[in-house]
């Protein structure tokens, strides 16, 4: 299984002052130098590329080759997203970046926005049909309020992920191992399958929460269970094992393209 590495750059006590960056706000990204852009690319490759792609094409994080970023409509917001992350999502904070690093990285991210966006394959309208009928995806996912919430909500999935990632999610669900940044626990696997064996039977589900003494999970029927670990016969984490069936065989290439196109268009609007 691929080892997952969190990208949060953290300091001695995990958090850096916001005010240290106040000065960056005056710095315009408009006339950033070529050498700063190159330095920014170097930092980006180290800190960002694993989620946003070497060329900004996205992956576990969205493509950054977009002229308008939802969480970063202006320079100030972009500085904030990079240094503070987006709490509760997979976008981690980078507290330890100094003002000049921040300007360089932000400048490079902005330059990616001027590149041409990747072309989305397939047909979103036909994809919606696959989603609703043959795929029966709403048996496990909610989009704009409709469906059952066994797997993650997909209403905004097109904002979170990129084409290659979504294709893999559909064809080989066990391969996607996205993470979520938790302020207190660090970077956690967003979708972790856990297996608990108690005297009443075997339970498999997606981990919802866990501490030293108990674990909460949701099974494929959507039921929520809470177990006291000391009362279990065994408890394991199944990294890289998804509860979602793979559709690589049941759907055709074209149907998958269409489905991915539909998913990429899910941006939170109804």
């Amino acid at each position: 299984m691929a080892k997952v590495i969190s990208l949060s750059i953290v300091l001695a006590s995990l958090v850096l002052s916001f005010s240290a960056y106040a000065q960056t706000n005056d710095t315009s990204l408009a006339n950033i130098s070529q050498s700063d852009l190159e330095a920014g690319q170097g930092r980006y490759r180290v800190l960002c590329a694993r989620c946003h792609g070497m060329l900004g094409e996205g992956g576990e994080g969205p493509s950054l080759k977009r002229a308008r970023l939802i969480h970063a409509p202006n320079d100030e917001a972009l500085f904030s997203v990079i240094s503070n992350g987006i709490p509760g999502t997979g976008m981690p904070a980078n507290w330890a970046l100094g003002p000049s690093d921040l300007v360089q990285i932000a400048g490079y991210v902005k330059s990616l926005g001027q590149l041409e966006a990747e072309e989305i394959p397939g047909d979103a309208i036909r994809g919606r049909l696959v989603y609703e009928t043959k795929g029966n995806c709403s048996a496990c996912h909610i989009v704009s309020g409709i469906g059952r919430g066994v797997g993650p909500e997909l209403t905004e999935v097109g904002m979170r992920r990129n084409i290659a990632y979504l294709r893999e999610s559909v064809t080989n669900p066990s391969a996607d191992q996205p993470r979520v940044s938790d302020r207190r626990k660090g970077t956690l696997n967003s979708f972790l399958t856990v297996r608990a064996v108690s005297e009443y039977g075997v339970y498999e589900g997606m981990r919802i929460n866990e501490d030293e003494f108990s674990v909460q999970m949701r099974d494929i029927a959507g039921d929520i269970y809470s177990f006291e670990k000391s009362k279990l016969i065994s408890y394991e984490k199944n990294f890289g094992h998804s509860l979602m069936p793979g559709y690589g065989v049941t759907l055709s290439e074209v149907e998958i393209d269409d489905l991915v196109s539909y998913l990429m268009n899910l941006k939170g609007e109804n």
Binding site: K3, V4, S6, S8, I9, G186, T187, L188, K237
Partner: peptide, 9 residues
């Protein structure tokens, strides 16, 4: 700086 192997790792 560092990239920590944190959370589930």
């Amino acid at each position: 700086g560092e990239q920590a192997l944190d959370g589930d790792n």
